[in-house]
């Protein structure tokens, strides 16, 4: 499974949706993932990729981890995975 598929699987699991229902243009809002769901999602991403995601729930915009769309989240995870190696 590549990064994209893995991230989508994590988001789908959190949103209680089928992976086929999650598109790159979806947002956390459209998926129905609230702030606590996001924190759990980030934890799942960290565990899945063995990375540390710089995310502060108080200032999401300043965290340096773009969560504005599924596409943005995948790109951010890809960057962090690249930095790791």
């Amino acid at each position: 499974m590549n990064v994209q598929d893995k991230v989508i699987a994590i988001l789908a699991d959190q949103a209680l949706l089928d992976v086929s229902d999650v598109t790159l243009d979806d947002t956390l809002d459209s998926l129905g993932i609230d702030s606590m769901g996001l924190v759990e999602t980030i934890f799942a991403i960290e565990e899945a990729f063995d990375i540390t995601v710089p995310f502060n729930a108080n200032a999401p915009a300043e965290s340096g981890f773009d969560v504005t769309s599924v596409r943005a989240i995948i790109a951010a995870v890809q960057d962090l995975v690249k930095e790791k190696v």
Partner: peptide, 19 residues
Amino acid sequence: GLRVMSRDGCRPFSADRNG
């Protein structure tokens, strides 16, 4: 784990607070 902690200080009610 909750991602609500600040790494640099506690600044209640301030626009630049971060946890």
